[in-house]
């Protein structure tokens, strides 16, 4: 099974939609890797364009964000755009159904936490790094600055979603079971 975690990038906004994650004009691409440079390129945070090519973004393995992440279109390209950028965990207050389902179908993690837990991540000092303990359903965030603060939160993963992750996704799971 994959291991999950690493440096996190924080996207402080509700309702980030799939058009912002990967604009429709790239839907003519027929390979996943070609989506790589375009992840989040149309995102606005505080009404300002987000720098989708910063070093922090390049290093990120985890996204932390607010409510209703991934709303809008069904395009799995949104999930692939994260995957090809080595981001295999999205932590949010809530997800749009199709996006969440697409994440688990690809064998990667969409973790839902309470708004208080998410707030705690957003108020940590410096950059943060995330580790995910799948067996014990725990996420730990570590401030990488001198404070070395940590915040630990529990999450719930449905047994079926867990099985999709261990199988490496829905196609492999379905091939085995149906």
């Amino acid at each position: 099974m994959k291991t999950f975690g690493g440096p996190a990038i924080l996207l402080d906004r509700n309702d980030i939609n799939t058009d912002e994650i990967i604009p429709a004009k790239y839907l003519t691409e027929i390979t996943k890797i070609s989506l790589k440079p375009h992840l989040l390129e149309d995102l606005l945070l505080n009404d300002k364009p987000f720098d989708s090519h910063s070093t922090k973004m390049e290093e990120a393995k985890v996204v932390i964000t607010r409510a209703n992440f991934g709303c809008g279109s069904s395009r799995e390209h949104a999930v692939w755009a994260f995957e090809v950028n080595d981001i295999n965990v999205v932590i949010a207050e809530s997800f749009a159904r199709i996006f969440r389902q697409n994440m688990f179908n690809c064998g990667i993690l969409a973790i839902q936490l309470s708004s208080d837990d998410i707030d705690a991540f957003f108020t940590m000092s410096g950059d943060i790094s995330i580790s995910v303990d799948m067996d014990n359903e725990k996420v730990t965030a570590l401030s990488t600055d001198s404070s070395q603060n940590t915040v630990e939160c529990s999450f719930l993963l449905n047994e079926y979603d867990k099985n999709l992750v261990s199988a490496g996704g829905w196609l492999a799971y379905a091939e085995k079971n149906y």
Partner: peptide, 8 residues
């Protein structure tokens, strides 16, 4: 649904 669901 997404592409993986469609595939299955």
């Amino acid at each position: 649904v997404g592409t993986t669901d469609l595939e299955v």
